[in-house]
Computed example of a mutant assay.
Amino acid sequence: MKHSKKGEFYGDTNKTIYLDGITLTDTVYTHPKVDWHYHEHAYFTFILQGNVIEGNKKEVYNCKAGSMLFHNWQDAHYNIKPEGFTRGFHLEIEKHWFDNLNLNSESLEGSSKILNPDIKLLMYKVFRASKVETSPDLPTQILLLEIISKLQDTFKSVQDKKPKWVTTLDELLHEEFAENLSLEYLSSILNIHPIHLSRDFSKYFHCNLGEYIRKLKVEKALSLMSFSKLSFTEIAYQCGFSDQSHFNRCFREMNDLNPSEHKRILFKK
């Protein structure tokens, strides 16, 4: 089985940045298929543009722009790239990075597809730092610590067997976030009282319902920006914002820059 070394991905590498225990790689995928292989270190794959299919011993993931995967070290998988342009951003973490910070890398098992919008928004910040910061080491280290903390919380919540309605609600919100959702509608679908839903939502999602929906909308907007022909007005409409000014305001609150600045960085050579 192929053993991929640090910074080695299958395509044309736009840029590789070596930091203290962290490697950032921006790669355009060129191989229609990559057979079973594993990587030397734990790493995240973040699809910036296009589509890729990835399979491991347990699951197959259909990944499009905005999809994010985590692999612990030496976790075997394969890739299939459909026709068209596909670009991925990778963040590799060496074991000594975990050890130096007294973090347990073994708690991050196997492969998983990450849906948490907080983690994705943080990874977009890592990507932008790699493009605009002359010395991205410190901001990347800080952002990665936040990512690992939230990822560990996500894995722990699965192990703690959260109520079924929480998983059902999260799936529903990911599918219908652009709709004009009401507390009464969600409560009726979940068959729980609106007060119970409103009171317990922050316990499992660490923010209120309205804020979580805004995060999903902005995360979706970020992925749609990979389609260069879409205007910001079209993106705002597809993501369920009332108008472009509302979209711009929410986007800036969560990303510390406006949509046009992010898009310029995304397509920066």
Rank of each mutant, 00 (worst) to 15 (best):
E146M: 13
G11L: 04
S149Q: 12
L144K: 04
S149D: 14
F247P: 00
R199L: 12
C63V: 11
S111E: 14
R87W: 09
S157D: 07
L91R: 08
H77W: 09
V218F: 02
Y43G: 11
E253G: 00
D137E: 15
N79V: 12
P194W: 03
N248K: 12
H206V: 04
G66Y: 06
L172V: 08
H71T: 02
D20Q: 11
L190E: 06
G55P: 07
V158E: 10
H196E: 13
Y204Q: 06
T16V: 07
E8T: 09
G210A: 07
I22Q: 02
I80L: 09
K81S: 04
S260Y: 02
V28G: 00
L197P: 03
L151I: 00
V52A: 12
K2I: 08
G110K: 12
E54K: 05
T27L: 06
D160P: 00
N51K: 10
K64C: 07
S245F: 06
N255F: 02
Y29C: 05
P163Q: 07
T134F: 11
K57T: 06
E83S: 14
S242P: 00
L173T: 13
N104E: 08
E92F: 09
L144S: 09
L69V: 05
R214Q: 11
I93L: 15
K203E: 13
Y78T: 11
E176F: 13
K81Y: 06
L19T: 04
D256Q: 13
E40R: 15
H193T: 07
K161P: 00
R214A: 06
I148N: 04
N208S: 10
K2Y: 06
Y237K: 10
I189L: 15
K150S: 13
L173M: 14
K120F: 08
F89D: 07
K220V: 00
G240M: 01
D170M: 11
E54L: 07
F89A: 02
F267G: 01
F89T: 02
S67Q: 04
N191W: 00
I114M: 09
K161C: 01
S198I: 07
L144M: 15
W36C: 08
Y18K: 04
C250E: 12
T167H: 03
R249S: 12
L173Q: 06
Y185R: 14
Y10D: 12
T23G: 01
W165A: 07
C239F: 07
